[in-house]
Design a protein around this nucleic acid. Structure first.
Length: 864
RNA sequence: GCCCGCCUGGCGGAAUGGUAGACGCAGCGGACUUAAAAUCCGCAGCUUUCGGGCGUGCCGGUUCAAGUCCGGCGGCGGGCACCA
């Protein structure tokens, strides 16, 4: 180092493409459709991207995390399936078509090409031969085949129903896609509309989708809870109240309740506005019709948000009561009753349900108390403005009096069943999944509507049913429907003139089985059993928490439906799930209120100013990167300036992967410095091929211990998904290598230093693969690091020679002593008592108890 | 309203009930340099009469020992929400 040689600089710009090329040439990341039997398999998958045109930092994080797992598992001897594809259907392509006159397919393909190039520059260990886009007819044709199988199996059906209509996007939305009463994409208030549309019978699997959550022990608890709540199992009773007089042929009202114990506390029945009986009344009663129309126009969620006011309309109808034959109860239409849940009708028990109480107070209905808290007088207990829904005893309820709530539920259901008025039932919150979308850029639903044959599947030999290319976007609505010829066909069954279904699938259908298709992406059938049965389930799935319900639930359903149709053996698609945090950044606003990109801002004299004008900038909060706030950083630019490894290293440093991470320029520069430092640290060992030394100086042994402890620690951290800790341990090893420079001449040090450098490269490989290959090659390593096995720590070097034992008095640290590992208690305690500071403090005090935890701690408990 | 998670230096964070603050960022000091950058080395929770005292949101408990376990409170974040 004394020579005036310029410090080595790692030229990532030439090294990164070179190593990517080398991996590609060697086929390091390719696996077969049918996994080989000689090694265990591991399927790593990151949620595939929508091809918007550019990758963003969320992608960088997602795919880096997956790549660390893939490269690590490969080194551990697994054959690793790590594919990439494109969630390529969807509305943005149609919007681009409307705005710029470019065909959605062309726009999408161009975006895919741009993003593929960016992802490749990240150096991901992906088997690119498996790449596909969901808009490829070869993919969506197989999806059509799956759908027809589901149709035949009764897992898909066409149904006339109220749907969520997004007036801005001009399409139907699934319940899952309505958030706070607004469309998840457009943000428009959703309307209710009755339409015939296709739906997937996800409710058929509700019990098993719920039960199987328990087995997903490598899923975050949070996601499992969210799904469980969404599926929403509740036990209760269904019961039928006969109407005092029939209305339009309707003789009774069926309700669902979880509180049959409070049946004696009933004071009314309430119907949803869309309930058949409500509609029947509305048909003859103008007041009812007006109220029903009002409820429908508002949308239930809007009411909840804006006013939360209970409103109703008295139909004038009455029902009889199973246990109170002498009384009758009024039937109301109420705005707080949901047609989608239960039976669309409830019985009101105001004393013990807050909503019912609000309603009863407003309309002057009775409030009979039937549950009394322990210690209260049943005759005197009254309910004010708060309903009582706590524990207590049943009262004023005939045969139920004195029972607990649970007992009373059973007794009431038993009596109802005997009387034939009702029965116990399990109700689910989950609704069937409406998949029809009135869109062009999606997978065509492969059915034909024939006047005489009804719904006829498109014959298998006509799949894929392709989208027509020649469509126009010059008017609102569905271009497929407007197409002059596409929808007109002869019925495959009878030959008569018929029309094609012009709706396409919700794009969530496309992403519900892509993980299965990756196993055999070119197959002439949706799946190849030996391939999917060999590779599935995905061992580690990685993506954002925002898909905790929608995508993950649909994929779970789809896998079950595929199993029922014989396409896979597995019921669960994802054995392990990891939800990553978001990438955040400070946001900036100019004086005149424009959002500024971080690139437009610079630091000047400790204050942020606008680069172009020098004007001060308001620094806003650190939040998720978003285009609207312009607080985004383009990964492409970062990779160009600092290299892929720097970007990967930064995004793995500091934060645990599940937590949000703040992207900072300083952090990136820090990561880049480490890339260069590690490269420089290895330099003295380049070309050195020392034998295992006969004797090692203590310094050399110490370095070797650090090296092997780091191997163990990094391995442990990678296994536990605590990549930030792995990063920290590698920093420590780098520090140890740097320190060893001072004793480079000691016995065995050349060997120890070379070993440390090589191990640093090998340990850093999953995270910074290009740099690792470069260092490994310069050290004289044979072949590609990408095919090297994961290093193993030598147990002899992990064994500690001496331990530092903390000495406490009454739990407070008073000193430390060195001891041999496993030293006998008496010896250690004696040494602890002799420690000068400890001895001084123990003077004149009586030791009551001596606690000795081997190799850890000694604690003296003293009197007084 | 209900459910879940989180709360540790200036900042991100580390810590199988056993020496709190590893590692990094920012900071400070030094070396090298005409100088700066880069690099390298070092310091660093607060406080102190230099013995020590205080310290992981707050209050209490269990324990020889609590960031960690238990109970309560507060704050922040997220999810669900007229679900009968």
């Amino acid at each position: 180092m004394n020579e005036a040689s310029p410090p080595a600089v790692y030229d990532f710009a030439s090294a990164e493409p070179q190593w990517q090329h080398a991996w590609n040439e060697a086929g390091c990341f390719a696996v077969d459709d049918i996994p080989a039997s000689d090694r265990p398999k591991y399927y790593v998958l990151e949620m595939f991207p929508y091809p918007s045109g550019k990758i963003h930092m969320g992608h960088v994080r997602n795919y880096t995390l997956g790549d660390v797992v893939a490269r690590y598992k490969r080194a551990c001897g697994y054959q690793v399936l790590h594919p990439m594809g494109w969630d390529a259907f969807g509305l943005p392509a149609e919007n681009a078509a409307r705005e710029r006159g470019v065909h959605p397919g062309e726009w999408t393909r161009a975006n895919i090409a741009a993003m593929r190039a960016e992802l490749k520059r990240m150096g991901l260990s992906i088997d690119w031969r498996r790449e596909f886009a969901t808009c490829d007819p070869e993919y969506y044709g197989q999806q059509q085949r799956l759908f027809l199988a589901f149709l035949a199996a009764g897992l898909a059906e066409r149904r006339e129903s109220f749907v969520n209509w997004d007036p801005v996007d001009g399409t139907v939305l699934a319940n899952e896609q309505v958030i706070d009463g607004r469309g998840w994409r457009s943000g428009a208030l959703v309307e209710k509309k009755k339409l015939a549309q296709w739906s997937m019978r996800i409710t058929k699997f509700a019990p098993e989708l719920l039960a199987a959550l328990d087995g997903l022990d490598r899923w975050p608890e949070r996601v499992r809870t969210m799904q469980a709540k969404w599926i929403g199992r509740s036990e209760g009773a269904r019961l039928r109240f006969p109407l005092a007089a029939e209305e339009a042929g309707i003789a009774e009202v069926e309700v669902f309740t979880t509180r049959p114990d409070t049946l004696f506390g009933m004071s009314f029945v309430a119907l949803a506005a869309e309930h058949p009986l409500a509609l029947a009344v509305a048909a003859r009663d103008a007041g009812a019709a007006a109220f029903v129309a009002e409820c429908r126009g508002l949308g239930t969620s809007e009411v909840a948000l804006e006013q939360a006011e209970k409103r109703g309309y008295d139909t004038g109808l009455c029902v009889r009561h199973p246990f109170l034959p002498d009384q009758s109860f009024p039937v109301w239409i109420a705005n707080f009753v949901l047609m989608e849940y239960g039976t669309g009708a409830i019985y009101g028990c105001p004393a013990h349900d807050q909503r019912d109480l609000d309603f009863a107070r407003k309309y002057g209905l009775e409030v009979p108390v039937v549950v009394v808290p322990d210690g209260e007088d049943p005759a005197a207990f009254q309910v004010g403005e708060r309903a009582f829904d706590g524990a207590g005893r049943i009262a004023n309820s005939g045969f139920l009096d004195g029972r607990t709530i649970e007992d009373a539920k059973q007794a009431a259901i038993g009596r109802l069943t005997e009387m034939g008025w009702g029965e116990s039932v399990v109700n689910w919150r989950l609704r069937d999944w409406g998949v029809s979308r009135q869109r062009y850029w999606g997978c065509p639903i492969p059915v034909i509507h024939c006047g005489s044959c009804g719904v006829v599947p498109v014959p298998d030999d006509q799949l894929p049913l392709r989208l027509p290319e020649d469509v126009t976007f010059d008017r609102p609505g569905n271009p497929l429907d407007h197409h002059p010829t596409w929808k007109h066909v002869a019925c495959p069954a009878c030959g008569a003139a018929a029309t094609r279904e012009t709706d396409t699938f919700d794009t969530f259908v496309d992403s519900s089985w892509y993980f299965a298709r990756f196993c055999s992406p070119a197959a002439a059938t949706p799946t190849v059993r030996a391939a999917v049965d060999g590779w599935l389930p995905v061992d580690q799935y990685i993506g954002g928490i925002e898909h905790a319900i929608l995508h993950l639930l649909y994929a779970r359903f789809f896998t079950r439906a595929m199993r029922a149709s014989g396409y896979v053996a597995q019921a669960e698609p994802f054995a392990g799930l990891f939800t990553q945090g978001m990438v955040t950044h400070a946001s900036y606003k100019s004086e005149d209120g424009r959002w500024l990109y971080p690139d437009e801002v610079e630091q000047s004299h400790g204050a942020a100013v606008e680069r172009a004008s020098g004007r001060p900038v308001v620094v806003g909060r650190v939040e998720a990167m978003s285009k609207s706030k312009r607080n985004t950083v383009d990964p492409g630019g970062i990779i160009y300036r600092y290299g892929a490894d720097t970007a990967r290293w930064f995004i793995l440093s500091d934060n645990p992967p599940e937590r949000d991470i703040e992207w900072t320029e300083a952090g990136v520069v820090g990561a880049y410095r480490f890339v260069q430092r590690l490269y420089r640290l290895a330099e003295p060992s380049c070309g050195v091929r020392p034998e295992v030394p006969a004797t090692c100086a203590p310094e050399a042994t110490a370095l070797r211990r650090t090296t092997h402890r780091t191997i163990a620690a990094v391995t442990h951290a990678l296994e536990g998904f605590t990549f930030n800790v792995a990063v920290a341990r590698i920093y420590e090893l780098a520090g140890a290598i740097a320190e060893s420079d001072r004793t480079a001449e000691a016995d065995g040090m050349a060997f120890a230093r070379r070993e440390a450098s090589e191990m640093a490269a090998r340990l850093v490989y999953p995270m910074m693969p290009h740099l690792a290959e470069e260092i490994f090659a310069r050290l004289g390593g044979a072949g590609l690091l990408a095919v090297q096995p994961w290093p193993k720590a030598e147990p002899a070097l992990l064994a500690v020679q001496a331990v530092t034992i903390a000495v406490q008095i009454m739990g407070k640290l008073r000193g430390t002593i060195e001891a041999a590992p496993g030293a006998p208690a008496a010896e250690v305690i004696a040494a602890a008592e002799a420690e000068p500071n400890v001895a001084r403090q123990l003077e004149g005090r009586r030791i009551v108890k001596r606690i000795h935890v081997p190799d850890k701690i000694v604690n003296f408990v003293v009197a007084g």
